[in-house]
C-alpha cells in the first residue's frame, strides 16, 4: 500500500508544478491591462502608470511568477488587483457557496443515480429499464441552464416557493442557505445523475455477466444476494471514476448555473476576474481548482485500492 501511495503523491506534486507554469504562462499572455481597465477611458496615462506601480505590475514576469509561487507555498495567494483584498479571503468566501453547492448536487446525483442504475440493471430490458434509459438520455441532452430557467419560472415566479436566485449567506441559517442552493443543485444534478445512472447500469451489467457471478449463482445465492454482495462492489470502479470527475466538474463548472441564479460562487468570481483582468485571482483560483481536481483523483485512486484489493497487492 505504501509504495502505491508514494507513487501517487509524487505524480500529484509534479502535476501541480507543471500546472502552475502552464496557468501562469497562459494567463500572462492574455492581452489587456488591469490598471487601464480599472481607470476607464478618461484616465490620464500617468495615473494608469501610478496604479500599475501600486499593483506591482511593473515587475518582470519572472519576478511575478516567483512571488506568486512562493506565496502559494505559504498559503498566501496574493492580493486581488480589483478587490484589493487577499485572494485567499475572497476564495474562502466563495467556497462557502461553491463547495456546499457541489456537495449538494453530488449528493442528489448519487442518491438518484444509484437506485435508478441498480434498478435498471436488475430489470434489464424491462419497461423500467427502457424508461430509465429514455429519461436519462433526455437528462443528458437538456442544457442545464435552460432547465434552470424553467425551474425559476415555475418555482420562483409562478409558485413563489423559492427566490429566483441569490444567496442569503449561512448566517441567515442553515436551512435558508440550503433552500437557496436547492434549485441550482437540482439543475446541476440532472445531467450528472443521468450520466451516473447510465454508467452504474452498464457497469453492473458487465459485472453481472462475469464468470464469478455465475459461480455464485450456481452455489445457490439468490439474485439479490449476488447483486449486493458481489456485483455491486465490483461494478464500483468506473462509477467512482465518474463521481470523482463529476465532483471536480461541479466545483469548477458551475459558472453558468451560478450566473443564472446569481450565486456568489467560484465560477462567477473567475468569470468576473477574467473580464476585469484580475489576473492574480484567475491564476490562484484556477490553480486551486487544478489542485482540487488532482486531489480528488488522488482520493479516487485510494478508493480504487479500497474496493479492489488486487490494486493494493500489485503494488
Amino acid at each position: 500500500m505504501l509504495p502505491y501511495l508514494i507513487k501517487r503523491l509524487g505524480s500529484l506534486i509534479v502535476s501541480l508544478l507543471v500546472a502552475s507554469l502552464v496557468i501562469f504562462a497562459c494567463i500572462e499572455v492574455v492581452p489587456g491591462d488591469p490598471a487601464s481597465f480599472m481607470l476607464g477611458i478618461n484616465a490620464q496615462p500617468d495615473t494608469v502608470d501610478a496604479l500599475r506601480e501600486e499593483l506591482g505590475l511593473n515587475q518582470t514576469i519572472a519576478q511575478r511568477y516567483m512571488s506568486w509561487i512562493t506565496g502559494l507555498l505559504t498559503g498566501d495567494m496574493g492580493t486581488s488587483y480589483t478587490y484589493r483584498s487577499p485572494v485567499s479571503d475572497i476564495v474562502a468566501d466563495r467556497l462557502q457557496v461553491s463547495l456546499p453547492l457541489a456537495l449538494y448536487a453530488l449528493a442528489l446525483t448519487v442518491l438518484v443515480a444509484f437506485p435508478v442504475g441498480v434498478l435498471a440493471a436488475a430489470r434489464r430490458g424491462s419497461a423500467t429499464d427502457l424508461s430509465v434509459m429514455g429519461v436519462t438520455q433526455l437528462g443528458i441532452a437538456v442544457p442545464n441552464f435552460w432547465f434552470a430557467i424553467l425551474m425559476v419560472i415555475v418555482f420562483a415566479i409562478n409558485l413563489g416557493w423559492f427566490s429566483a436566485g441569490g444567496f442569503p449567506g449561512w448566517d441567515a441559517g442553515f436551512f435558508a442557505g440550503l433552500k437557496a442552493l436547492t434549485l441550482p443543485a437540482v439543475a446541476l444534478a440532472l445531467p450528472q445523475a443521468s450520466i451516473l445512472a447510465r454508467v452504474m447500469r452498464s457497469s453492473l451489467l458487465d459485472t453481472l455477466s462475469e464468470d464469478y457471478i455465475r459461480s455464485a449463482r450456481a452455489k445457490g445465492l439468490t439474485k439479490r444476494q449476488v447483486m449486493w454482495r458481489h456485483a455491486l462492489r465490483n461494478a464500483m470502479i468506473p462509477v467512482l471514476t465518474i463521481i470523482g470527475l463529476q465532483f471536480s466538474f461541479l466545483l469548477a463548472g458551475a459558472i453558468i448555473i451560478e450566473n443564472v441564479f446569481f450565486l456568489p460562487g467560484l465560477g462567477r468570481l473567475v468569470f468576473q476576474a477574467i473580464t476585469q483582468r484580475d489576473l492574480i485571482v484567475v491564476e490562484s483560483v484556477v490553480m486551486l481548482l487544478v489542485f482540487a481536481v488532482i486531489l480528488v483523483n488522488f482520493l479516487v485512486d485510494l478508493a480504487y485500492a479500497w474496493v479492489d484489493p488486487r490494486l493494493r497487492a500489485r503494488s
Binding site: 430557467i149 413563489g160 427566490s163 429566483a164 436566485g165 441569490g166 450566473n259 443564472v260 446569481f262
Partner: peptide, 18 residues
Amino acid sequence: FKFISEPTAAFAAMMAED
C-alpha cells in the same frame, strides 16, 4: 444592492419580486 448581470436572472428576480 444586489448584483445580477444575467438578463434572464434579472427578469426572474424582478418578476418574483425578490
